[in-house]
Design a protein around this nucleic acid. Structure first.
Length: 903
RNA sequence: GCCCGGGUGGUGGAAUGGUAGACACGCAGGACUUAAAAUCCUGUGACCGUUGAGGUCGUACGGGUUCGAGUCCCGUCCCGGGCACCA
């Protein structure tokens, strides 16, 4: 009996369903194993063969582990809030929930087709109120907590308030806003209730804050740092500008150290861990206060990672935006400084990035005093110092830092060596830490290891500075001015945010008439009529927060929901989480390296602090599956240049040797040459042009008349039509040569407008003869285009094809991202229909290591299909009988095996 | 510029420091067929040689360690990804 995958697979799928084979229970004597795929955003395009790669890999592991006696959790769900559904809603008016639901159905069908062992009973959707109720619940817990540095964990804000009441914030070591003042108990107790609440916001782990954000006007929303790449939005590539707005923010910076340390206990790829380390950007150094000469009580604070080089600081540089710049600038330098500030303000981020090497700056005329040796050093401003990083000021050590060196060289400032191991300081800075210090006062003769603690101790004792750790990571903006996201469970009363009563969760998205901002620029939720909160606290009606949560909110904790997906009383029961604990093996794309994976770790650490989850790190092992790239097929469309080359190679040279040498344009840009072709021994000139370009035809006709030349106009459309009939074209030229008429042009309108040339024939022509166009790969087999089907497409209407001698039209190919726009998408449904799910899955695994990116090639699947058929044939006879027996192998049927193994 | 990965036939890719190129695609030849498709068999790194012969060279390039290197070390080049006036 032939291998018939469709029958086999439908039989077993029905069996699994009837038997509930893959239903997973939370109570089992077996050891647990939790394998998880990053859940997909259900896009309208459906799945292509690249998407299921990770699912197939994890499905195999899940089945293997199950056979090995584990209770395996292998769930699937949808990250179903997102911008595309909202954009679609703006265009069509269809509620995002409706289109999302449809997309999910499609995804489900496609996933079912592949035969996964997901327990669909545990499916989650982030846009389901029953799910986002708990996203809101976690948000509320974040609001209610602050990060205590002594306990090194999150603690209730209530306790903090109690401490303020007794001692103010003097004894409190907690993560808070930079500008938080020191207050006494008396200060606190004398504050009105509102002031107290506003003060507490400086500590809460999520809080509204007026700050500069990445505002994307085209999308009408703010974006977080990881959603911005090179000054434009990662999705869509729209420009992003800095704008001051009141936004909810997540105090992820409180967890910097723990996020960094946690990386050491997880089995993730080094590159992902490194990316997270870079993103967190911890630098250990010291902050040092420099007095300003002649300004009593004014000092400039700098952060440096090389406090050991402080004696080599020969000048100081402030960011142009630095607060002190107006106060310090001397009258003489005022014009220069003003001009410079004006100039820097006019430059965009992109300009600044592209001109990194240019040294610019201005002297303020003021002097700072080096606290270690009392030396006066000039203060400059320059835009290589970033206002947003550190204190916006640096002590410049040109001997050790290349940017400082460039600046010093440009402005003729002194460069002083501080280590005897530094070399060639007249050519470049030398950042070495080797050798012993020279020119360095109290640390002369010391090594780096000894010098740093010595200096820091001295600075601390004299109140001039202290050891400090600084991070690049900023707090995460948590508000989006969009509709299709979780509403923030907050109402506003007297400009103070308050949490909803827990029993009012979930706060469900209200209906609105249009999915756009209001005329006054408020977020879409402002359109919801009568959407107000009645608080039981004061029996008054209040405005809700109008922004929604970002895409990463729901995905920052969803793996817990799978453990207990139907629980209405908790995000996940203590029992369930005690059993499943955490994800043993997480699989997903490397593009989530710093977004999802960092925010998730942050939330998990927080939930851990609250004792709600048992593990600090939620994913013990992480595998990043590689992309499956598309193999795009490209067809070559002839451009005008092609017809000229064609005419020369195929017609003029072979048919008119007696008229040579003819002139052809060596270079199209050569203005002196007027005509495409001109016969030397005849007054005929030939022009190749599209019949649509009547202006050009008229112009060339006038030129020819003035030159006394006779003109033959060949339409590229007529050449396209008779591209394989060189004689016909030759005859046309012949007639013109032998005639006395002054002007020749075909009267009849052309049938064809385009010519496509088989790839095999393009090598003879120069590359600029063609434009390459993507053609749908489903019409191409073995790089040969199915012409009868292709002619149906609009791109091939009125097109002629120049085919190979054997009548085939070949395409070239390129490996690139699989996407609709490149027409290279391969649908897993088609593969399953033709070869069966087993074959499809096996081929995906056969392509190469899961972590690697590799191109999809449908041709190759036949090899796996053949293997499966032969394998099936070994066990099932033609009549459907089971072939293997328990008999001992005889010599005859053993012989082939022996031969084979000898080979 | 810095930090991670990589570089092996026409292609995807195999090879605990021990016969490089498994397996598959593609290609070539053959069988079956009126023919094609499908299927099956054989061959397939390059070069030289050939009768049923063997040999030389080959894992980006240049060195090194080793009895032995695709694999380990040093340097160079190239490709992919990430970060980037981050003090």
């Amino acid at each position: 009996m032939e291998y018939a995958p469709r029958e086999i697979e439908s039989k077993w799928k029905a069996w699994w369903k009837a038997q509930r084979t893959y239903q997973v229970h939370n109570h089992s004597p077996k050891p647990k194993f939790y394998i998880l795929n990053m859940f997909p955003y259900p896009s309208g395009a459906g799945l292509h063969v690249g998407h299921p790669l990770g699912y197939i890999a994890s499905d195999i592991v899940a089945r293997y582990k199950r056979l090995k006696g584990f209770n395996v959790l292998n769930p699937m769900g949808y990250d179903s809030f997102g911008l595309p559904a909202e954009q679609y809603a703006i265009q069509t008016g269809i509620h995002p929930a409706v289109s999302t639901e449809q997309n999910i159905e499609r995804y489900r069908e496609q996933l079912d087709n592949i035969g996964f062992c997901f327990d669909w009973n545990r499916e989650v959707r982030t846009s389901d109120p029953a799910f986002y109720k708990w996203t809101q619940w976690i948000f509320m817990r974040l609001f209610e907590h602050y990060y205590d540095l002594d306990a090194d964990k999150a603690l209730p804000v209530q306790d903090l308030a109690a401490r303020f009441e007794k001692n103010g914030n003097y004894g409190v070591r907690a993560v808070c806003d930079e500008d938080t003042p020191k207050i006494s108990a008396a200060d606190w107790n004398s504050m009105p209730e509102k002031e107290q609440q506003l003060f507490l916001l400086k500590y809460r782990l999520t809080f509204p804050e007026e700050s500069y954000v990445n505002w994307c006007p085209a999308m009408g929303t703010v974006l977080s740092n990881d959603e911005v790449k090179d000054g434009v939005s990662e999705r869509g590539g729209y420009p992003v500008e800095r704008k001051l707005m009141k936004q909810w923010s997540m105090r992820i910076t409180a967890y910097c150290d723990r996020l960094l340390d946690g990386l050491n206990e997880v089995d993730w790829s080094e590159s992902i861990k490194e990316q997270q380390r870079n993103w967190i950007g911890r630098s250990q150094g010291a902050s040092v206060r420099f007095a300003v000469d002649g300004h009593e009580g004014v000092h400039i604070e700098v952060f440096t990672t090389r406090v050991d080089t402080i004696y080599g600081a020969t000048f100081m540089v402030l960011a142009p935006e630095h607060d002190l710049v107006p106060h310090l600038t001397t009258p003489a330098q005022q014009p220069e400084v003003d001009t410079y500030i004006k100039w820097t303000a006019s430059r965009s981020d992109l300009e600044r990035m592209s001109e990194v090497k240019r040294v610019t700056g201005a002297n303020t005329g003021a002097f700072a005093v080096n606290p270690c040796n009392g030396q006066k050093i000039p203060i400059y401003i320059a835009d290589y110092v970033l206002a947003g990083y550190g204190t916006g000021a640096v002590m410049a050590v040109p001997g050790g830092d290349q940017r400082d060196w460039n600046f010093a060289t440009h402005f003729g400032l002194p460069i002083v060596p501080v280590l005897d191991a530094q070399q060639n300081l007249d050519e470049a800075a030398d950042p070495t830490k080797a050798g012993c210090y020279i020119n360095s006062g109290m640390i002369n003769g010391m090594t780096y290891e000894a010098a740093v603690p010595t200096l820091i101790r001295w600075l601390e004792e004299n109140g001039l500075g202290k050891g400090k750790v600084q991070y690049k990571l900023r707090n995460a903006v948590f508000s989006r001015q969009r509709y299709w996201g979780e509403p923030v469970p907050v109402y506003w009363k007297d400009e103070v945010p308050h949490l909803l009563d827990e029993k009012d969760l979930p706060l469900v998205l209200p209906a609105i008439d249009k999915y756009l901002p209001t005329e006054s620029g408020e977020p879409p939720l402002a359109r919801a009529e009568g959407w107000r909160y009645t608080s039981e606290q004061d029996n008054a009606v209040h405005e809700y927060e109008l922004s929604t949560m970002p895409g990463w909110a729901g995905s920052s904790w969803y793996w817990y929901r799978y453990m207990d997906p139907h629980n209405d009383g908790e995000f996940c029961s203590a029992d369930a989480v005690k059993y499943w604990k955490c994800v043993d093996w997480y699989i997903g794309g490397a593009e989530h390296a710093v977004g999802h994976l960092l925010y998730s770790r942050f939330w998990n650490h927080f939930l851990y602090d609250l004792g709600l989850v048992p593990e600090r790190e939620f994913a013990k092992k992480l595998t990043n599956q590689g992309m499956i790239q598309g193999r795009s097929s490209l067809v070559f469309r002839a451009k005008e240049h092609f017809y000229e080359e064609y005419l020369w190679i195929k017609v003029l040279q072979p048919y008119f040797p007696e008229y040579g040498p003819m002139r052809i344009p060596a270079n199209k840009a050569e203005e002196s040459f007027t005509y495409d072709f001109a016969f030397e021994t005849n007054d005929l000139v030939v022009e190749v042009v599209s019949w649509k370009q009547s202006d050009k035809i008229e112009a060339i006709r006038k030129t020819a008349e003035a030159d006394g030349k006779r003109l033959l106009v060949l339409f590229i459309e007529e050449l396209a039509e008779c591209i394989n009939e060189h004689e016909r074209t030759a005859a046309k030229i012949s007639r013109a040569l032998n005639s006395r008429d002054r002007f020749f042009m075909t009267e009849q309108g052309p049938q064809y407008e385009q010519l496509f040339v088989s790839y095999n024939l393009t090598a003879k022509y120069s590359p600029e003869c063609f434009s390459k166009l993507h053609v749908d790969v489903s019409m191409v087999g073995d790089d040969v285009l199915d012409l009868s089907r292709a002619r149906q497409l609009s791109m091939f209407q009125n097109a002629n094809f120049k085919v190979d001698p054997d009548g085939k039209f070949t395409c070239s190919y390129e490996v690139e991202k699989m996407s609709k726009s490149k027409y290279n998408v391969v649908n897993p449904d088609d593969m399953v229909a033709q070869y069966g799910a087993d074959c499809f899955r096996m081929y995906e695994m056969f392509l190469g290591p899961v972590e690697m990116s590799k191109p999809w090639d449908t041709n190759g699947i036949t090899g796996v299909y053949g293997f499966l058929r032969r394998f099936w044939g070994l066990f099932i006879g033609e009549d459907g009988a089971w072939l293997p027996t328990d008999e001992a192998p005889s010599a005859t049927n053993c012989a082939p095996c022996t031969t084979a193994s000898k080979k």
